[in-house]
Design a binder for these strands. Structure first.
Length: 556
RNA sequence: UGGGGAGUCGUUCAAUGGUAGGACAUCGGCCUUUGACGCCGAGUAUCUAGGUUCGAAUCCUAGCUCCCCAGCCA
């Protein structure tokens, strides 16, 4: 289906490179996450693009952790990132790398620049460096240490590595141009002294490369042909090229694209981390989060996420995509793949007064009308059933095709029943319904072919299984909370609704953790994928069914 | 107002000098043993002003608006 789809500007650029014979026609990409948080759907756009392009062009894609800041990184994040990318169906084979694999090489490269008089050790403090850097309009001025000799720089830099200087006392900087209009070129810091335990190199190093110094060389070392990254690195490109050129090593082509943003959520790692740390959500994998682990738990199929991403395409313009677009892809996927089951979320007991007291019948139900191969299952039916509380209305509007005074409805797969009486408690609340059924309507249609407009779902009381159902809504009430000063005030307090007393059909007792279903007339739900205590079933609402009835109701 | 980017329906992606199109969203209608799905239909867009051209979203000029950059973060 995506065959006729227009190629994006990146693929066009790669086509052109191949046509020219650039990189000998090779295509080799990479996804370079920093292991300082969980991956979200924005990252999925980035790694999906890299892996997909490699696949489409018959090339390869590496996974490389850009682990240059040990104070923020951990193996927990490394493991989570690996799990998420695998879940999305991508494979880097044996090409799993870390920037920390290259620390030694990077150190040697730095020495090369020092020897060439293109890097120097600076004793200025952090504040001073900032002052000397100038502003967006004013050029910077050279550090007093800028003209140290290569010999002295070599000695000092070695001492930095050997731990002879305290944290923050010195840095290694590239000697480029303090007056450059591009601030990234004003003698950027290459190394800082940082006595921090690294998740892979342990305490072997007390100096760590800056991302800008590590990134381009890492791509070079891996013979990457196309370094795809987001827009904000556009003006770092000249710096990366400067490093590569002055080192005299292989240079990839960097192409920048716009990050993915979604409405009604936040996407920055800092904000996601805040939500986790302040307990606004239960963790990185809370189903309300835009993280891949959250979406997995919530029941979003990887294929639906991929479909969404391919529909969105890739461009350079800043955009915020309506989250409804994602939900569309999820619904479309689940509509084809999710088995239909009946679940009563807010149960109301119905006694079918003319149905034999101890009788149990079984009806054959189609598992998925969209997929014949999904087969059928047997549904037990008895005198007492649960129906949805909202499927009864004492004083219904005209177009309410459900239970109410004098109304007959179809019980999906079973019988027609007609409302007779509502039993109320002392508070006047309806606690039970009395109905009669038409034995002629077995299988939910009658010989006389009469029309019954309403069809409702139900669960047999003695066969029902208990379940907890968690209904999710948008995490934020506003379109772009990311741009708001007090963004946390836009958190949707009703983003989670927990229903404790749900009753579901017995077949669900055998459901696999993480598997998805359509609760008919409600939405798509996924069984909790984490170990739970007790035998209660916990379902997460993946996405509700579209509801034109609810929509028209709201209008009136 | 230094440098780097970007402006096309409500949203997003296309149209690469030749009829501005798709998807989502919205609004109608049909269908229905899920008020789902499906089907049919509708409306709404080229940032502005000039210029080149038979013809401009596309090329030129001048503006305007938005995003990114002054971490020893990535």
């Amino acid at each position: 289906m995506s065959e006729e789809k227009k190629k994006d500007f990146i693929r066009e650029a790669i086509d052109a490179d191949i046509a020219e014979g650039r990189f000998d026609g090779r295509v080799h990409t990479r996804f370079p996450p920093e292991p300082n948080g969980y991956l979200h759907i924005g990252h999925a756009k980035a790694f999906g693009l890299n892996f997909q392009i490699a696949e489409d062009f018959g090339g390869k894609c590496n996974l490389r952790f850009d682990d240059t800041n040990p104070t923020k990184e951990s193996t927990e994040f490394v493991d989570a990132i690996i799990e998420d990318i695998k879940w999305m169906g991508y494979d880097w084979e044996d090409r799993l790398f870390y920037a920390s694999d290259y620390y030694e090489t990077l150190f040697d490269y730095a020495m090369q620049l020092i020897d060439a008089g293109k890097a120097y050790v600076d004793d200025l403090s952090g504040d001073e460096i900032r002052e000397y850097r100038g502003t967006l309009k004013e050029p910077g001025k050279p550090s007093p240490w800028r003209d140290r000799s290569p010999e002295e720089n070599r000695t000092l830099f070695q001492e930095m590595r050997d731990g002879k200087h305290p944290d923050g006392s010195k840095v290694l900087r590239a000697k480029i141009d303090m007056a450059s209009p591009n601030i990234n070129m004003r003698d950027p810091v290459m190394y800082r002294i940082l006595r921090a335990h690294h998740h892979r190199t342990g305490d072997a190093w007390c100096i760590y490369p800056m991302y800008d110094w590590a990134h381009g060389q890492s791509d070079s070392l891996e013979s990457i042909t196309h370094s795809l990254c987001s827009l904000e690195f556009e003006d770092h490109r000249p710096l990366y090229e400067w490093f590569l050129e002055n080192l005299g090593i292989y240079a990839p082509r960097q192409i920048e694209f716009a990050r993915l943003k979604l409405t009604n959520t936040v996407m920055s790692k800092r904000k996601l981390r805040t939500l986790v740390e302040e307990g606004v959500v239960d963790g990185w994998d809370d189903p309300r989060m835009p993280t891949l682990s959250g979406m997995r738990r919530r029941g979003y199929p990887p294929a639906a996420i991929k479909d969404f991403l391919s529909r969105m395409g890739v461009a350079k313009r800043d955009s915020v995509i309506d989250i409804a677009q994602l939900e569309f892809s999820v619904r479309e996927n689940l509509n084809k793949n999710a088995p239909r089951v009946m679940a009563v979320l807010k149960p109301l007991k119905v006694v079918i007064t003319n149905y034999p007291e101890d009788q149990v019948e079984h009806f054959t139900a189609i598992n998925n009308p969209e997929d014949e191969s999904a087969g059928t299952r047997e549904l037990p039916f008895s005198r007492e059933i649960y129906v949805e509380t909202t499927d009864f209305w004492e004083d219904p509007p005209k177009k309410f095709h459900r239970l109410g005074p004098g109304r007959e409805v179809r019980l999906k797969h079973a019988y027609y029943i007609t409302f007779q009486e509502a039993i109320k408690n002392d508070a006047g609340e309806v606690v039970e319904l009395r109905c009669t059924y038409d034995p002629e309507s077995r299988g939910a249609s009658t010989p006389d072919g009469r029309k019954v407009r309403g069809t409702i779902h139900w669960v047999s009381v003695p066969h029902a299984k208990d379940a907890e159902v968690r209904n999710y809504d948008r995490l934020f009430l506003t379109d772009a909370p990311d741009t708001e000063e007090n963004w946390q005030e836009s958190v949707n307090p009703d983003a989670l609704e927990t229903l404790q007393g749900a009753k579901v059909e017995p077949s669900l007792a055998e459901a696999d953790p993480g598997s998805g279903y359509q609760f008919m007339r409600h939405g798509y739900y996924a069984l909790e994928n984490k170990p739970t205590s007790g035998d209660k079933l916990i379902f997460h609402r993946t996405v509700p069914l579209r509801d034109s009835w609810g929509k028209t109701q709201k209008k009136s």
